[in-house]
Amino acid sequence: MIVRKIGILGGTFDPPHIGHLLIAQEVLEQCKLDEIWFMPANIPPHKKTDDVSSVNDRIKMVTKAIEGAERFVVSTVELERKGPSYTVDTLKDLKIKLPDVDFYFIIGADMIEQLHTWERIDELFEYVTFVGLQRPGYSQLSRYEGKMKLLTIPQVDISSSCIRERLKEGRSIRYLVPEAVRLFIEERELYGTSASVRNR
């Protein structure tokens, strides 16, 4: 049996930006994975529903962001689930459906020391290998330290919330997101985008 190795990069992707793409590429190469799945979240347990753009808009933005990258895939698994989405339930279902796949779940430095607070975290370790992204200023200490791969990748200080804030302020996001994503945001007038930021 040939075992495939697939990395999962979860999040709201509201919007996706070049930092997400950099993370995906680095993990793909360093862990020698076959694919990276970008997995937009449905209703993150820690967010209010009205804080998140529509499902269709987020899927379209991620699709545009990874266009041309053959080993990057959009997964709608979590979006097809009903109600609040927990990683453990998603990965349990995936392992049942795809027993010949080893899954690698990518988490940021801020999440490494908070893993013990995740829903049914000990069960989750049965379904997935965690890939933790090290970052200056964050502790990599975790009770699960020996159970995850820790990677160092180039740092790009960009966040989706920062991009949304820039747009509300009428500032350009050129080069912070893939050009196709920027044009889609302007076309749909997402995040309070106005004509004043067009073509910047």
Rank of each mutant, 00 (worst) to 15 (best):
I158H: 05
R166E: 12
I121F: 13
L176T: 03
E126L: 01
S172K: 06
S142Q: 04
R135Q: 08
G170P: 05
Y127R: 06
T152S: 15
G132F: 02
R164S: 00
E186N: 14
Q140P: 04
G170R: 09
V131C: 01
I173T: 08
Q140H: 10
F184V: 03
V131W: 07
T129P: 00
V177P: 10
V128E: 05
I185A: 02
M148Q: 01
K168D: 03
V156R: 15
S139Y: 07
R135N: 06
L124M: 00
I163K: 06
D122N: 09
R182F: 14
R182C: 15
I158N: 08
Y144R: 00
L141C: 05
S139T: 15
G170N: 10
R174L: 05
R120P: 04
S172I: 03
K147V: 05
I121D: 03
D122F: 12
I153A: 02
G137E: 12
E123Y: 05
E169I: 04
M148T: 12
L124A: 11
E123A: 04
S142L: 11
S142V: 07
V156P: 13
R171M: 08
E186Q: 15
F184T: 03
T129H: 08
E179T: 14
L141V: 01
I153E: 10
R166Q: 11
G137S: 13
V156M: 02
R135W: 02
Y127M: 12
I163Y: 01
M148A: 13
V128N: 03
D122T: 09
L151V: 03
R171Q: 01
T117D: 02
F130H: 00
Y138W: 03
T117F: 04
R120T: 01
K149T: 00
E119G: 08
A180F: 07
F130Q: 05
L176M: 12
I173Q: 06
L176N: 05
C162L: 14
T152F: 10
F184K: 04
G137F: 08
S161C: 06
R182P: 00
T117M: 06
L151C: 07
A180I: 01
R120Y: 11
S172H: 08
L141Y: 06
E123S: 09
E126H: 07
I163R: 09
P136A: 11
I153N: 10
V156D: 13
L167E: 09
G137K: 15
L124I: 07
Q155S: 07
S139C: 15
P154E: 14
S160I: 12
L124W: 09
I158V: 11
W118F: 07
V177N: 04
R171F: 06
H116N: 06
G132H: 07
S161P: 09
G170K: 09
S160Q: 12
K168V: 14
K168S: 00
T117L: 12
C162R: 15
V156W: 04
A180K: 09
L150M: 09
V156H: 13
P154I: 15
S172W: 08
R174V: 02
D122S: 05
P178V: 06
E186H: 13
